[in-house]
Amino acid sequence: MSSYRDQVSFSFQDGHKRYRWLLASPAERILATVADAALGALAAAPLLWSVYQMRHTPHHFDVWAHVFLASPLMWGGAVLLSAYVLWQALWLAQRGQTLGKRLLGIRIIRDNGHVAGFFHCLMLRTVVFVLLCVIMIGGTLMLLRLDDNFSVYELIWLPYLASFLMLFQTTDDHRTLQDRFAKTVVVREKMRQEA
C-alpha cells in the first residue's frame, strides 16, 4: 500500500532536469497553522495581560501614567509581539516558511517551482488576500443591503473556511484560495531531483 507522500507530488521541468517536491499533507498544513496561532498567542500574552490589567485599574488611577511609566510588561510585550511578527514576515518572505511550517518541515513555493519570495508569499498570500476578502465581503453586504445586519469582520471566516475545505481536494495540488490567488503550492521542505 502506497503512502500519501508516494501518491502526491508537485514537479516541474527546468532545462534538462526534472525536480519534484512532495506536497504537504492537509494535516501538516493544519498543524503548522495551529502551531503559528499558539506561538502568536504566547508572543501576544504579555501585552494582552498588561492591557487587561490596565482596563481593570481604578478610575482614579491615571491610565496614561500606567502606560508610559508603570508598565514595563506592556512595553516588553509590545516588543515581543513586534519581534515575533517581524520574524514570521522575514522567514515567510525569505524561506516561504513560518515558524509552524518550519517545525513541520513544509514551505511555500511558486507553482513554477521557484522560491515564492516577498511578493508571492507575504504580499499576495497574506496582505492582498485579506484586503480583497474584506472588500469583496463588504461590497457584497452593501449590494445586498445587509451591511446593517452584518459586519465584514463577522464574515471574514468564510474565505478561510473555503480554503480549509479545499485542503482536502484530490486535484490541483491541494491548493487553497490563497494558493490559487498567489500562484503558490505548499510542499515538503526537501526537493528531489530526477533525471
Rank of each mutant, 00 (worst) to 15 (best):
I30T: 09
Y19P: 06
R18H: 06
A43I: 01
M74K: 14
L47M: 00
G15N: 13
L48G: 03
A27F: 13
D62H: 15
S9W: 07
P72T: 09
A24G: 15
S82C: 02
A27R: 12
S71I: 09
A27G: 09
V51P: 02
R20E: 13
L81R: 00
P46L: 02
A44S: 02
L81Y: 02
V67E: 06
D14H: 14
A38M: 08
G76R: 02
A24L: 09
L39A: 05
L31R: 08
K17P: 01
H66K: 15
P46Q: 03
A24S: 14
A65P: 01
I30C: 10
A24F: 14
D62N: 14
T57A: 08
G76A: 07
W75D: 00
D36G: 05
I30V: 15
A41F: 10
A35D: 04
D14M: 09
L48H: 00
D14R: 08
A24D: 13
F10P: 09
D36S: 05
A32K: 02
A78V: 05
S9I: 05
I30H: 06
F10D: 00
L81I: 02
A37V: 12
H59V: 12
R18K: 08
S25H: 13
V79K: 04
A38N: 05
A41K: 00
S50E: 02
L80F: 05
L39D: 01
A70E: 10
E28M: 13
G77T: 03
S71G: 08
P72E: 03
R5Q: 10
V63S: 04
H56E: 08
H66D: 06
H66W: 14
W49R: 01
P46A: 01
T33W: 10
W75T: 04
R5I: 10
S71R: 07
D14F: 13
L81H: 01
P26T: 03
F68H: 14
W75Q: 04
H66M: 15
M54G: 10
A70D: 10
A32S: 11
A41M: 09
A37K: 11
Q13V: 12
A38E: 00
V67Y: 02
A24Q: 07
A38K: 04
F10C: 10
A35N: 05
A44H: 01
L47A: 00
Q53K: 15
R18Y: 07
